[in-house]
Design a protein around this nucleic acid. Structure first.
Length: 882
DNA sequence: GTCCTCACG
DNA sequence: ACGTACGTGAGGACG
């Protein structure tokens, strides 16, 4: 039998493909052009060559024995662009789906793997074809080993046997290293002999055969200058030859048998091709897209599992081991007090389904509460809170699919288990297909629901390894395990605990508001001369801009804009306008904050139990829903009074609020290393006053309130990724004036200017930006040809590291504060987080401790080059904690 | 469902 | 010339 081995130089072909093809992106923002080019090439070569054995060799790491010998080896080579390096994991995933063996070895280059394996193949009588874009490979050519070099990007290859090398260069394969020794290689920073190019080198080799031959016979070389150069760079030539020599006996633990190629399985290939959106390849492999979809959706064969009952449970107790994937099926969007259908548990050797009636199975309760028993889960907080409402504790969470998926791409809005699974090539029916949606939603029969819940845990189990390697590649492991996972437990406890709200106080305010609103409505209708719905922007627009003929300042897509900033400009134009503004303000308080909050007070606890969402924002911040407790009014006094209704849940306790002062500008000072900004914070100056002094060139006592206000707006703008247009809108000045402010700011804060410029360049280069804790946000529009999209991405690049680092810091602080409170056995409770502040309820005797402990932990959460500052206040309700 | 508006950091 | 400040969630109107 004729054994035929094909070895592909992975890095070389991926590189060629990357530069030969336009930068393709999938909808989720994956770059795929190198993978695509590589795959088409691979399939073509397999078809043409029909190898029996197949290997793709990759470089591993930066340090090789060559760099140890010559530290500048590959020194001048440009860093691999991240758009390419991000594709290597994808490529390997695809190769695995196709069943193609790939290999890399720390400290060695792909060349050496190829050299070693091809030598072994040769010794075993194999015919070998090496596919590469690198001419160095020609040194491996023999009668049995041929090399195919790419031409014109990757669309053609040229095959070399010894005869072709002789024809083209007049050299034997062994002399290829001599050629490189003499001429060097600028791309690998191999020196060779300066001034000796391919022509001279060939001439020398035709005469003297090898580098050593040339050096021995220098005196016979024609041309005085050339002789001198060779003499001066003899060592370089010897070293260059050595560097170019490919190892043929690297310590590779890989047998030829392992390289035997088995036809791939459709089920494995299709999901990957789908994920990379390789439509044409799907077709080429004989699937049309519809067929591929069908295959992907095809129900898996019956999943086997054991349903736990009163009778059988004792004999399954010892299957509760570690680690296990756990799925707690909570049947409601809002998980507080929600019904639980059942729990499924999956490990390497068992799948269990525990109907809710059996959830109090003592062995299970004990196992769930044991922090030593590691659990892999999807949305740990949801499960923990829902179980806590049933009096069951769940500890020992060691992996969370939801959080892992979020960290991998925080801009993605959909992290449902079935969709995450699909991204990793695993099929799972969506909850929607099981339960139905909208009015048709219903709980299916247990014969449908049980297997679905088990499949979910099974999916979590299978995702664990794949997601961990993705996290590792992106440097997100610590963020998950040391920050987000511990935080989930802290947040869950806060949510379950809830915040006491004084319903009577809300009622009183509601009555007062109702009267005022009725009065305003009457007056507005009188002034308008007709009754209409003031809450309808459409009707209001018609009254203001048609009936009353007020000037149109701004339009929306659908009609006149009646937003507050427009109405404020019209305040003097008609007496109805200020009344509308007041109506809007009070109406908002009534509907959202009085009525809205009252609806959210839990019947049993008399408290409000919000949900903090840990996987929605693109920057790493939390959000809060049902209700949102992160936007309770404060800026206007009327609204601020709402906070009087947020009270401690124990008599005689206090509400304590601790907030970071100027955390975002302090972070900016740190990451930009702007001397001026650092100086201002080290001296603990009022930052807006200091900015005004610097920008307007005045002394502290000459800063007027207008100057400070303008400086403050500039500071905000800086954090948001400033534009002259945005600043002009905010300050009601012309764009030109705004541009002048910005220019003056940057001439004083040059470090900030440098940061803003650099971060945009970095975003263009990498395709993403990161926070101090390595949280990552992809910016696919950063190179867009659309001005708007690109500008937006640029401002995001400037803002996200700042906002995101602030989010990192307060999250760290929360985890640390919770630990300290537990260690010191404090009765005080953390209740809320509002982006840069933490809210607690505190018994009187702990006020002193907490006023010291909380700021201390918050200020030291992450050391920066400027101090972090925390203000702390307390009072009998949230309003008074100011 | 989508749009507009407005509450917060 | 382009036309938005960064990040969220909720309520009401309307098709």
């Amino acid at each position: 039998m004729n054994e035929k081995l094909m070895i592909i130089d992975g890095n070389s072909i991926a590189n060629r493909a990357f530069y030969a093809l336009p930068l393709l992106t999938t909808e989720e923002g994956l770059y795929t052009n190198a993978v695509y080019g590589f795959t088409t090439m691979l399939l073509r070569m397999m078809e043409e060559e029909k190898p029996t054995h197949l290997l793709v060799a990759f470089d591993a790491g930066k340090v090789t024995f060559r760099t140890e010998e010559y530290k500048d080896y590959k020194g001048k080579r440009l860093k691999t662009p991240s758009e390419l390096s991000a594709q290597f994991p994808l490529l390997k995933e695809l190769l695995e789906a196709f069943g193609v063996k790939h290999y890399e070895l720390n400290g060695y280059e792909a060349d050496d793997i190829i050299g070693t394996i091809s030598a072994r193949a040769e010794a075993n009588g194999f015919e070998t074809l090496i596919v590469s874009g690198d001419k160095d490979m020609l040194q491996l050519v023999s009668d049995k080993t041929h090399v195919a070099l790419t031409r014109k990007g990757i669309s053609e290859v040229e095959r070399y046997s010894p005869a072709e090398i002789d024809e083209k260069y007049g050299l034997t394969p062994a002399q290829i290293v001599d050629l490189k020794g003499l001429m060097g290689d600028t791309s690998d920073n191999i020196p060779g002999i300066p001034g000796v190019g391919e022509k001279t080198a060939l001439k020398l080799l035709h005469e003297f055969k090898t580098v050593e031959g040339v050096l021995e016979h220098v005196s016979e070389v024609k041309g005085k200058k050339l002789q001198e150069k060779i003499e001066a760079h003899a060592d370089d030539a010897r070293m260059s030859k050595q560097l170019a020599t490919i190892l043929r006996d690297a310590p590779i633990a890989l047998s030829l048998d392992e390289l035997k190629y088995q036809p791939y399985e459709r089920e494995k290939v299709v999901p990957v091709l789908e994920r990379f959106a390789f439509k044409s390849l799907l077709e080429r492999l004989g699937f049309d897209s519809a067929e591929a979809d069908a295959l992907l959706q095809q129900e898996e064969k019956e999943i086997e599992f054991v349903t736990i009952t009163e009778e059988n449970r004792d004999k399954w107790a010892d299957k509760l081991t570690s680690p296990m994937a756990v799925m707690v099926e909570v049947d409601a969007e809002n998980y507080h007090g929600a019904p639980i259908h059942g729990v499924s548990l999956v490990s390497e050797d068992v799948r269990l389904y525990v109907p809710f009636g059996q959830v109090k199975w003592p062995a299970l309760v004990e196992w769930m509460a044991d922090p030593e028993q590691r659990k892999w889960i999807y949305d740990a907080k949801r499960s923990q809170v829902a179980l806590a409402w049933k009096g069951i504790s769940l500890e020992g969470i060691s992996f969370d699919v939801l959080l892992a998926s979020y960290l991998s791409n925080p801009s993605e809005t959909n992290h449902q288990l079935c969709d995450v699974a699909e991204r990793y090539g695993i099929k799972l029916a969506s909850d929607e297909t099981i339960y139905g949606k909208g009015a048709k939603r219903s709980v299916p029969d247990i014969s449908v629901l049980g297997p679905h819940i088990v499949r979910k845990a099974d999916t979590i189990y299978r995702l664990y390894d794949r997601m961990n390697s993705t996290l590792r590649e992106e440097g997100l492991t610590d963020l998950l395990y040391d920050l987000e996972l511990p935080l989930a437990a802290v947040l869950g406890a806060m949510e379950k605990r809830g915040v006491r709200v004084d319903k009577e106080r809300l009622d009183e305010m509601g009555v007062e508001l109702k009267e005022k609103l009725e009065g305003l409505t009457k007056e507005i209708h009188r002034l308008a001369g007709t009754e209409f719905n003031i809450n309808s922007p459409k009707q209001l627009g018609e009254i203001l801009f048609e009936k009353l003929q007020l000037p149109v300042i701004k339009k929306t897509k659908t009609g006149y804009s009646t937003s507050a900033d427009v109405l404020e400009k019209l305040e003097g134009a008609h007496e109805i306008v200020p009344l509308i503004l007041e109506f809007r303000q009070l109406g908002k308080l009534q509907s959202t904050y009085i009525e809205g909050l009252k609806k959210e007070i839990h019947e049993e606890t008399g408290k409000i139990h919000t949900s903090f969402n840990q996987a929605v924002t693109a920057t790493g911040r939390l959000s809060s829903t049902e209700p949102n407790l992160q936007n309770i009014p404060i800026r206007l006094e009327e609204g601020r009074k709402i906070r009087q209704a947020f009270v401690p849940s124990e008599p005689g306790w206090y509400i304590l609020a601790a907030d970071y002062s100027q955390i975002e500008l302090r972070i900016l000072a740190h990451i930009s290393q702007d001397e001026n900004l650092i100086d201002a914070f080290r001296k603990d100056m009022d930052i807006h006053t200091r900015t005004a002094m610097d920008v307007f060139g005045v002394e502290e006592d000459e800063v007027t309130s207008l100057m400070r206000r303008q400086a403050k707006a500039v500071n905000f703008g800086i954090v948001y990724g400033i534009s002259d247009y945005g600043l002009s809108q905010n300050l009601h000045i012309t764009r030109k004036q705004a541009a002048e402010f910005i220019e003056r700011y940057f001439s004083v804060f040059q470090g900030v200017k440098r940061y803003m410029d650099n971060i945009v360049v970095e975003a263009r280069k990498n395709g993403y930006v990161t926070t101090m804790l390595n949280r990552r946000r992809y910016l696919p529009d950063i190179n867009s040809s659309n001005f708007n999209q690109r500008s937006f991405a640029e401002r995001t690049a400037m803002n996200t590291p700042i906002q995101g680092t602030a989010a990192d810091i307060i999250k760290l602080a929360m985890v640390n504060v919770a630990r300290r409170m537990e260690d010191e056995k404090l009765a005080s409770r953390m209740l809320l987080q509002v982006h840069d502040e933490l809210i607690f309820e505190v018994p009187e005797h702990e006020l002193e401790t907490m006023c010291r402990l909380v700021p201390d932990v918050m200020e030291n959460a992450l050391p920066l080059d400027v101090p972090l500052k925390v203000d702390v206040n307390y009072g009998i309700n949230w309003y008074e904690a100011k």
